[in-house]
């Protein structure tokens, strides 16, 4: 199996985990109640951190996802072109 395939699987699993973390911060606060009610930027932590992760951090993750998966597409396409030309 080539490295592009392994990369595809790795990216999909890593970005799925990162996206789920960004969108489901509530699980962390309910699992670890000690993290609640610390004031961050003037808001209780369990309120503002999920909001920031669910928007700003998510945008960064998604931008990175777009960049890396676009590069991976190019890699898979190049592999296809090289296998065509070697025939």
């Amino acid at each position: 199996m080539n490295s592009a395939y392994k990369k595809e699987i790795r990216y999909t699993l890593i970005f799925s985990a990162l996206l789920l973390i960004c969108g489901h911060f509530g699980l962390l606060f309910v699992a670890l109640p000690g993290l609640q009610n610390k004031m961050v930027f003037g808001f209780p932590s369990q309120y503002i951190i999920p909001i920031i992760f669910g928007w700003v951090v998510l945008m960064v993750v998604v931008a990175l996802q777009a960049k890396l998966t676009n590069d991976l597409d190019d890699e898979i396409e190049a592999l296809g072109d090289s296998s065509e030309s070697s025939k």
Partner: peptide
């Protein structure tokens, strides 16, 4: 908040 994950996923 998690609805924003839909299109990226």
């Amino acid at each position: 908040i998690q609805f924003t994950l839909s299109i990226p996923l």
